[in-house]
Amino acid sequence: MTAKTQYVKDLTPGQPAADVFCLGAARLAQAKNGPFWTLVLEDATGQIEAKIWSPAAGNYADLAPGQFVYVEGQVGAYRDRPQINVERLRVLPPEEYAPDLSQFVPTSAEPPEALLEQLTELCRAEISYAPWRKFCAKVLSHPDFRDRLVEAPGAKNVHHAYRGGLLEHTLSVARLVLAICERYPHLDRDTLVAAAMCHDLGKAWELTAGPARDYTDEGRLLGHIVITLELVEPLLKKCGIDPELALHFKHILLAHHGEYEYGSPRRPKTAEAFVLHFADNIDAKINQISNAFESEEPGQWSPFARTLDRYLYNPRRTPRETNEKSPRPREKDAQCLLPLKA
């Protein structure tokens, strides 16, 4: 098998596609004229939908996420997004094809290992209550947690869906809650930062890492919120966290999805729980918006963003200038600002 030369980011309507991709999803459906496959092909640069129409769809019975496939077809467009109409597809067995995973697994712009160190340093520097500081250090240095955290995506496909995505999202949420605490100093800063650090911890067990991000049995049966509580409970006791603080901390975790219809076992009932819910939502939405545009040129509309149920617009932004009345953000504040592109 020759080296991979075609990447998802370079595929545009009107060109042929002929290369190896990883199957991110595969679904067989039935139309009036016969069965058809809807596939998601992915590599390190992104994802593209592909279709195998009837009667050719009947030639494939065992397509599944995680397989590496050689695809030949033509790139078209559907709902403003590129889509491959597959003419031929061959599943590559492991004994024939040993992939270079760096070509197929999208990774955060900053190395996950560096994000983990930044999160560790943030907790050490920003938490003053010794038991919470000890708790965070134990979570982030736990031998059963570290490797999972480095590899974990932030979600299956909605936001931060790449290696290091969980750490990138967690670090952003922690920085956001710190910025909010600066404005509202009565908030329980230490409990809130600890909760921000842990709020999605269970996703490292809910989702598989690697080329095929999918839900584990534990993820399907319990979900990441329940998994998180199970993971942190022994460490809360071991670190001597005051029971009332631990109770509030667990409520913040349980309520961070905000509403029952979004999978939240409890709705927020404290100021800190509301803060984490909104910080989590802001970072997830900004990541979705950043990834919706096919170019960074202002004045462009995105393809239809299904997870947000709308088209998005990339406006022209005011140039940044410095003067005595409007200085640039202080270095500490600048760390909390989110770029348009991750």
Rank of each mutant, 00 (worst) to 15 (best):
residue 51 K to M: 13
residue 19 D to Y: 05
residue 177 V to D: 00
residue 115 L to T: 05
residue 14 G to L: 07
residue 11 L to Y: 05
residue 75 V to K: 07
residue 170 T to C: 01
residue 135 F to C: 04
residue 102 S to P: 07
residue 288 Q to E: 13
residue 11 L to Q: 13
residue 1 M to Q: 11
residue 328 R to E: 13
residue 143 P to D: 02
residue 132 W to K: 06
residue 160 H to R: 02
residue 90 R to D: 11
residue 302 S to L: 10
residue 318 T to S: 12
residue 197 M to N: 00
residue 20 V to Y: 04
residue 41 L to V: 00
residue 7 Y to A: 07
residue 15 Q to I: 11
residue 77 A to W: 07
residue 251 H to L: 09
residue 213 R to N: 03
residue 92 L to Y: 07
residue 318 T to C: 11
residue 80 D to A: 13
residue 41 L to I: 00
residue 174 A to E: 01
residue 35 P to G: 01
residue 214 D to V: 13
residue 260 Y to P: 11
residue 38 T to I: 07
residue 272 E to C: 09
residue 169 H to N: 03
residue 129 Y to N: 10
residue 130 A to F: 08
residue 323 N to E: 11
residue 217 D to E: 14
residue 96 E to Q: 15
residue 143 P to T: 03
residue 149 L to F: 03
residue 216 T to I: 03
residue 96 E to N: 14
residue 85 N to S: 14
residue 191 T to Q: 09
residue 320 R to T: 14
residue 125 A to Y: 06
residue 142 H to F: 04
residue 35 P to W: 00
residue 4 K to S: 06
residue 150 V to E: 02
residue 314 N to Q: 15
residue 332 K to A: 14
residue 61 A to Y: 08
residue 157 N to M: 09
residue 192 L to Q: 00
residue 184 Y to C: 09
residue 90 R to E: 15
residue 263 G to A: 08
residue 99 P to W: 10
residue 130 A to P: 09
residue 217 D to G: 06
residue 48 I to D: 00
residue 65 P to Y: 04
residue 136 C to K: 02
residue 95 E to P: 04
residue 340 L to W: 15
residue 206 E to T: 02
residue 31 A to H: 01
residue 37 W to H: 00
residue 31 A to R: 08
residue 35 P to A: 09
residue 60 Y to Q: 03
residue 259 E to C: 08
residue 63 L to W: 08
residue 279 A to Q: 08
residue 51 K to C: 03
residue 49 E to A: 12
residue 68 F to V: 04
residue 219 G to Q: 04
residue 36 F to Y: 14
residue 249 F to Q: 06
residue 30 Q to K: 12
residue 135 F to P: 02
residue 258 G to A: 07
residue 115 L to V: 07
residue 208 T to W: 00
residue 273 A to Y: 10
residue 107 T to P: 05
residue 78 Y to G: 06
residue 190 D to M: 01
residue 195 A to E: 01
residue 268 P to V: 10
residue 184 Y to F: 12
residue 14 G to M: 08
residue 221 L to A: 14
residue 286 I to P: 03
residue 196 A to H: 02
residue 311 Y to N: 12
residue 25 A to K: 14
residue 140 L to R: 03
residue 148 R to G: 04
